[in-house]
Write a protein that binds this DNA or RNA. Structure first.
Lengths: 289, 289
DNA sequence: TCATGGCAGCAGCCCACCTTATGTCCAGAT
DNA sequence: ATCTGGACATAAGGTGGGCTGCTGCCATGA
């Protein structure tokens, strides 16, 4: 079968017009080069060169074929270049901080994809609240951080968004079968309310404030989302949470969209100094998405 | 070293996402394919695929490399195409008729070049006067003919031109050292004149007639150029011949350009029916010249 | 727990390809 | 004419690259 060495030889012969010199150029003996060309001519069933006394020149078809051989070799050269440029990209570590909900939901497929593309790069992820994440990034202790409502800047990329949804107990009047699963925020805030933060700065309270509304009847304020859901189940009140935080088991709960949807966006920001090849590769993967 | 088979395997694996199926696609065992990509990864020092349980998917660098591998393979495919299209071009015969002077002067390098480009095509050349050549072409007994002043048409190509020059004996008054080696045709025709045809239709007589001139003093009319030169040497008169017909030994002769140069052009015409690949290849070679 | 699918590793074998050595042809020189 | 040198082809022989066959490993699913 044909060897890339054979094509290198053919191209060299075309360049030098001389089998002997071409042979030593590619590190073969004259005999080897001669046989290489003879083999290709045999395989293709076409004469590639006319062997004159003085020089060995390509035939017409030979010329076309040699052109393609050059294409092949230049592709091979490109491969070498790609490999060289990827040096230092195949090894590396990315330190990343992420808050819990996203870490459990949208991050895993991303990490898996990245691990496929860059098996040599370790991504070590640590869980933190978003205040902590800001601090970690500022201190340079992590390269990348997942934050809520990231500023639009060059070293940040939007990953997704997450609608705030109302959670009411089954049987609540907002959840009557006849009605669509929609509620206006203004109606919601009039209910007995359970406030949950999830350790996150982008709280329901702020969402409500941004809509120029006020909580009339704040019953409880908790940190964990799960506590809030438990309280809703008990009929203590209603709450407003990001959709991703909803538990798998929604028994006893009724989820309502907001009539005028409000989203929290989240995205990745990188420490300005963390401009390693590994980090860039990570952002590159997310960019076209 | 790397084999083209290896690259075929890599591309197949990328296409199927599965080493086993790719292997049978390229006619290898699973083991062989596995070793092939392992070898390439070893050689390049780069991981090409991440072997998942479910599928074998390219890494980021692997993807770029596979792109180039496809380039290589498509080049190889192009080579196969070129070879296929050249079938019937590598064998063949061209019958050609040519008049003597050109056969001896400008044709040899052309034939040598063509023989280099198409060693499998035999060109058999026969010598004839240009009336005979016309007849041979018309009868289809030759594929290509060299003619003087060919009509501008698709199946003809101009090969060169050849100025008519005056030949006078040494010491002739036209050849005085003080004068430039130029003479006006009108002056020439007033001299004792020797007419030579060389068996060619494009005679000096016609050239003179086209310039609305007349021979005042026609002394001899011969067929062979060499006879004319001999007569000029003897001082019988002057003559007008195409430059190419001049003998190597010009002793006793003085060559003068015409003040208003007249050329005879010659070119190849092909029989309309002689549209074989071989003939087309011959014309293709001459076209860009 | 076993069966299945998919990949890697090992041993062995074989032939494809390279080298060494020699032959051939031609051109130019003596 | 003979010799010599350059350039390519050919013959023969050795070897290592690469393929096959088999086994092992691991994960998943019944």
């Amino acid at each position: 079968m044909m060897n890339l060495m054979h094509w290198r030889t053919v191209v060299a012969v075309a360049d030098y017009g001389n089998i002997t010199r071409a042979a030593e150029r590619v590190g073969l003996t004259q005999s080897g080069a001669s046989q290489a060309i003879a083999l290709l001519e045999e395989l293709l069933g076409v004469q590639l060169f006319t062997r004159d006394r003085r020089q060995t020149v390509p035939t017409a078809v030979g010329f076309q074929i040699i052109e393609q051989a050059r294409v092949m070799l230049s592709a091979l050269e490109t491969i070498r270049t790609v490999v060289d440029e990827s040096r230092g990209l195949e090894r590396g570590t990315i330190r990343m901080a992420c808050f819990p909900v996203v870490l459990a939901t949208i991050l895993p497929p991303i990490l898996r994809r990245f691990k496929q593309s860059h098996p040599g790069i370790d991504v070590i992820t640590l869980e933190a609240s978003d205040e902590e994440i800001d601090a970690l990034i500022a201190a340079g202790q992590v390269d990348i951080g997942m934050v809520v409502n990231p500023p639009a800047s060059r070293n940040s990329v939007l990953l997704g968004r997450d609608p705030w949804v109302a959670v009411v107990p089954n049987g609540h009047r907002f959840a009557r079968p006849a009605r669509r699963d929609v509620v206006a925020l203004s109606e919601l805030v009039a209910e007995p309310f359970i406030l949950a933060t999830g350790g996150c700065r982008a709280t329901a309270e702020k969402v409500i404030a941004e809509q120029r509304l006020k909580l009339d009847d704040l019953r409880v304020s908790v940190r964990d989302w799960s506590s809030a859901f438990a309280l809703v189940r008990e009929g203590v009140g209603v709450t407003l949470v990001p959709e991703l935080t909803l538990p798998d088991n929604r028994q006893g709960l009724r989820i309502l969209e907001l009539a005028e949807p409000v989203h929290r966006r989240f995205g990745l920001v990188s420490h300005t100094k963390a401009n390693t090849k590994a980090v860039r590769a990570f952002f590159d993967m997310l960019q076209p998405a």
